[in-house]
Amino acid sequence: MNHENPSFVLFGLSFNPANIMMLFITCLIVFLIAFFSTRNLKVKPTGMQNFMEWVMDFVKGIIKNNMDWRTGGRFHVLGITLIMFVFVANMLGLPMAVVVDHKLWWKSPTADPVITMTLATMVVVLTHFYGVKMLGVKGYFKTYLQPMPFLAPLKIIEEFANTLTLGLRLYGNIFAGEILIGLLASLGASSAFGLAGALIPALAWQGFSIFIGAIQAFIFVMLTMVYMAHKVDTDH
């Protein structure tokens, strides 16, 4: 399990080519699914269009749970892209992990804390951005004094806690899933006896990982909208 990550340095910044590749594959898959299921759209939907519309309505439901649709409608695109991206990213590491020269190339991009924390930070930064944009600078700072002014320090800590938990929850779940799949796979590869012992747990865990991947994608988008609602809705 002690694989190293490949890396190279460009413009003084270090890159992990495995991450970049997996991110690109994730983006490509998400784009292709979305692109081909929205070809020849009909008012009376068929096939994949139904599925995409279900995803859209699902995300719409998440947003509507947290805020007024007039406020939340603008986050619809963000939400759908996020849920598809995170879900596909979670799924990528399930069927296999490819290790070349002790370097891990194929994995879930969300099994890397840098990526999940980047996504989480991006989301939190967006919430602050929209908070300022929609409530004004004064309204934005006022939210820190609500419900009680003396809770302001907690509210500030909450922002960092939100970011950390949002990113690390996703990372932890997916990384743990991959570790266990890797362990079961190495057990299965060790001997015929090991294969017999590892087969059923591996299958079960992969199935469970699909479930976890879906749940984590849902939670990620759900929390994104919860944090967004805290910043842009005056009711909360």
């Binding site: 991450n19 979305a34 619809h76």
Partner: peptide, 25 residues
């Protein structure tokens, strides 16, 4: 910390979102 990865992640995600908005959503 792979600072490059952070930039790549945000960049890829943004591009994906823009493309999907234009072509799919």
């Amino acid at each position: 910390l792979n600072l490059g990865d952070i930039i790549v992640t945000v960049l890829f995600f943004t591009i994906l979102m823009v493309l999907l908005k234009k072509f799919a959503w």
